[in-house]
Amino acid sequence: MGARPLGQTADRPDVADPPLDVLVHARGLRKSYGQLEAVRGIDVTVRRGEAFGFLGPNGAGKSSTMRMIAAVSTASDGSLRVLGMDPATDGPAIRARLGVCPQDDTLDSELTVRENLLVYGRFFGLSRAEVARRADELLAFVQLGDRAGARVEQLSGGLKRRLTVARSLINEPELLMLDEPTTGLDPQARHLLWDRLFRLKQQGTTLLLTTHYMDEAEQLCDRLVVIDEGVIVAEGSPAQLIRDHSSREVCELRFGVDDHDGVAARLAHLGERVEVLPDRLLVYAADGESVAQAVHDLGLTPRSTLVRRSTLEDVFLRLTGRSLAD
């Protein structure tokens, strides 16, 4: 790697002293595992009260970044301040004020639902009485009050994730970190979790989450970075990213032919841009309906036509040439 060693960033005043309302301040952050460079120099600033997202496919470096911010993994290079402290030296003090909801549920399967909260709260040094009070509140919050005495193995994936969220809130964290919070959940469970996270956000909890679901990012994030192969390729609010990197609408066309490239060439003049995917063509234009009409007028007959608004998925496709859902 050979870049500058950790901490030698005093020549950059923004690094030396980030303002108080900045909870996460990363500059040139890198993480290597042997030969593999998972995170290749990213700059991130997360402010108090916002919901900030890392959007990217699996293996983009999201989880590695989250682990460094959560003070359970040391940065290979770059500078990182979390809650104004250095994770390399103040790990326990930082972790005391974070809530962490990891991608794989790390619930204690030998304990009951409620005991998971009681035991976890004690790790933060809370008194028994305080932990008991918060446990009951949180179980109600994630709608698990009636399952308090159940063993963790008996819970479905969605209930486990809700319990994990409840557990991550036991220390009333200033920053709640969620790694792929709804991956693997059915639609109903996802919506319930989104609703809970939205409430937290409204109560002023700062959220930091990773996701490879564009709808999740659009629903929850005030601001996000698109991350791919360990680097940030775009940053902004969901609406701003769509505005900057895609057209207003998209016309999706499915043809029953193998020659998508040939068809794409004939459509190129209809929109700002045409993307060829394995199973369909995407024509980007301000007015999708008129594209659909124009395709028809050319004498082409797609098997199906769908006109929709641009999403973060389109932004990602534009920026990386690849699809988010791999």
Binding site: A70, V72, G91, P92, A93, R95, A96, L98, V100, P102, D104, T106, L107, D108, S109, E110, Y120, F123, F124, G125, R167, N171
Partner: peptide, 14 residues
């Protein structure tokens, strides 16, 4: 298997 310590180390414990 249980990943108990992964969860424990996300708290102030070392």
């Amino acid at each position: 298997y249980e990943k108990v310590y992964d969860a424990v180390l996300a708290t102030p414990l070392r």
